[in-house]
Write a protein that binds this DNA or RNA. Structure first.
Length: 298
DNA sequence: AAACCGGGGGT
DNA sequence: ACCCCAGGTTT
């Protein structure tokens, strides 16, 4: 069939995508094309649910302070949490710290590339494990982040979003486009296309290098089915907001419970004990005395 | 499968 | 006001 085919041609799609990537990819990102696992792991964990532009300065500061697994493993938890200020999802900082210690202590400083051991590192799930092997070792693997998932859902499956597509279907479709060898530039191209052109809200199909291959474009870009989740509560009313406030105060040093209560909106104050217990469970706070709390020293 | 986990920027 | 983001872990 021709360009009116119902399904994209894999080789043609790869070629068009590759040419676009060489001309328009985000080649300036500092973690691109590095072949060592440490800086790539740092970038990947920082990029979990945090946008690229905000990660860049943190990435540089982090590598400057802790240039390798050994240095990070030797750091104090409190310093790691403090350096994470502003990135959000503070448990990721602890995971990265614990992963560095696992590499040093459990794997004798040798990065565990075997999938099972890789996935056992704290903070390394399906995406990050595939990303590390693909971007550092240049292996042809499906790498399904939110951007690539959306591109594959549209291009290969004709869906407006990846929301209702089973992961197995996304994997199979992504695999069908992979080159026989390599794969780093291919997946980076898909990722950049999703970030720069095939965006979630207002995709720029007029500027898309693979619109002629796209099933979603060919079918007139049908809208996604309506999302029928209940509306989320105001962020200021969530435990996440209160926990974030507490951790941010502890970054300045130990604090008495009365002060911690004072920095919370009144609506949260009855739950201070519960918030502190959950933070202690997560390793983000420890009691110093009966009523004084701090970041974990270890 | 669903809930939980922060914060900032874009629209 | 609402959406989005180089997800992972726990239940």
């Amino acid at each position: 069939m021709t360009s009116t085919s119902a399904t994209p041609d894999a080789a043609r799609t790869r070629d068009l995508l590759g040419a676009w990537f060489r001309a328009s990819g985000r080649h300036g990102l500092p973690w691109r094309r590095l072949r060592e696992p440490y800086p790539v792991l740092v970038s990947e964990v920082m990029l979990q649910q945090t946008q690229v532009d905000r990660v860049v300065p943190y990435y540089h500061a982090w590598l400057d302070r802790w240039p390798g697994f050994a240095e990070l493993a030797a750091a104090a938890s409190a310093d790691v949490i403090t350096a994470w200020r502003g990135l959000g999802y503070n448990r990721r900082a602890l995971a990265l710290h614990a992963a560095a210690r696992a590499v040093v202590e459990r794997h004798a400083g040798r990065f565990p590339w075997e999938p099972k051991e890789l996935r056992a590192l704290p903070g390394v799930g399906p995406y990050t494990a595939a990303a590390l092997r693909c971007f550092v070792l240049d292996e042809p693997l499906p790498v399904l982040d939110t951007n690539i998932s959306r591109v594959i859902a549209r291009l290969a499956l004709g869906q407006a979003t990846a929301r209702d597509v089973p992961r197995s279907a996304l994997e199979a479709a992504a695999r069908s486009f992979l080159p026989a060898q390599g794969g780093r530039d291919h997946n980076l191209a898909l990722m950049d296309l999703g970030a720069l052109v095939c965006t979630s809200r207002t995709p720029l199909c007029g500027s898309c290098p693979v619109s002629t291959q796209c099933r979603w474009y060919a079918s007139g870009r049908p809208l996604p089915p309506p999302d029928r989740r209940p509306p989320a509560p105001r962020f200021e009313d969530t435990a996440r907001f209160a926990r974030g406030r507490i951790v941010d105060r502890l970054r300045n040093g130990p604090a008495h419970k009365a002060e911690l209560s004072g920095i919370l909106p009144p609506r949260h104050r009855p739950y201070l004990e519960a918030y502190l217990a959950s933070l202690q469970r997560d390793g983000l706070a420890v009691p110093l005395g009966p009523d004084t709390w701090a970041l974990p020293p270890g």
